Computed example of a mutant assay.
Amino acid sequence: MTDIKLHGFWYSPFSMRVKWTLKLKNIPYEDIEEDRFNMSAQLLQYNPVHKKTPVLVHDGKPICESMIIVEYIDQIWPQNPLRPTNAYEKALAQFWVKYADDMVPAIASLVRCSNDIEKENAIEKIKEHLRVVEDQCFTEEKKFFGGDTINIVDIAFGSVVKFLVVLEDAFEVKILEYEKFPHFHSWYNNFKDAPVIKENLPDQDKMVTFLKFFREKILASS
């Protein structure tokens, strides 16, 4: 039987991507929860370059970086495919996956902001990204980025937006406003309510509590 282990953090948007992918494909795996502040020697051995999660270990071989792991899983287990087969559509999906990752620095800046000006600048940068997606990705009515089924772009954006929604609660601000981003807002509701995603979303209140603790730890060490 294939041996699959996932080293990750329960609250990490990057670990979420891999968990959702494994669940969408009905692949059994061992979930190994790492300690953000005291990572295991095994994890550091599996990812000696970046020393971070997630790491998927397949038959003893480690694969690092969340979207690389998602693509690897999609190649090895073809059931419920997440990537388009058409070359152009596949390239387009890769572009928007990259754009989802481009949002991460602005979101990280919001977590680390130490004053109102930094906070406002980070929020505006996030909204700039949301405007681009709102204007460019929802030119036609569709439930998901992949149409009627979840695809790799949904996985990429879904994890980022989940973390963003947690930040909204933690900072008591509204960023993904329905009035400004109606299509993006509707897409996220469809995504988070999909049975496999809904059953594997970290608890919102628990994430807010952890994020506040994590932020305090960051600011105290800066």
Rank of each mutant, 00 (worst) to 15 (best):
M1A: 08
D3E: 13
G8Q: 03
F9H: 10
Y11T: 10
V18I: 09
K23G: 10
N26P: 11
E30V: 08
E30T: 10
D35C: 05
R36D: 01
N38L: 08
M39E: 10
Q42R: 08
Q42C: 01
L43T: 13
L43D: 03
L43R: 05
Y46D: 02
N47Y: 07
P48D: 09
P48Y: 07
K51A: 01
K51P: 00
T53L: 05
P54N: 12
L56H: 09
L56Q: 13
H58N: 07
D59C: 14
G60A: 08
P62I: 04
C64T: 14
E65W: 01
D74A: 04
D74Y: 04
Q75T: 14
I76L: 15
I76V: 15
W77T: 02
Q79F: 07
N86W: 02
E89W: 07
K90E: 14
A91G: 00
Q94M: 13
F95Q: 09
F95H: 10
W96I: 12
V97M: 11
V97D: 01
D101R: 03
D101V: 08
D101I: 13
D102Y: 04
M103N: 15
M103S: 13
V104I: 12
I107A: 15
R112K: 15
C113S: 14
D116M: 15
D116V: 14
I117P: 01
K119W: 05
E120I: 07
E120H: 09
E120V: 12
K127G: 06
V133C: 09
D135G: 07
C137N: 07
C137L: 11
T139F: 05
T139I: 13
K142P: 02
F144N: 01
F145N: 06
G146S: 05
G147D: 04
T149Y: 04
T149G: 07
T149H: 12
I150L: 00
N151Q: 13
I152H: 10
D154H: 03
I155Y: 05
I155G: 04
S159K: 01
V160A: 02
K162M: 03
K162F: 01
F163R: 03
F163T: 06
L164K: 01
E172T: 09
K174Q: 01
E177D: 08
Y178H: 09
K180D: 08
K180G: 01
F181S: 07
F181Q: 00
F181M: 01
P182H: 12
H183F: 06
H183G: 02
Y188S: 00
F191W: 02
K192G: 01
D193G: 06
D193C: 14
A194N: 14
E199T: 11
L201H: 12
P202A: 11
D203A: 06
D205G: 03
K212H: 09
E216C: 12
L219P: 07
L219I: 15
S222D: 12
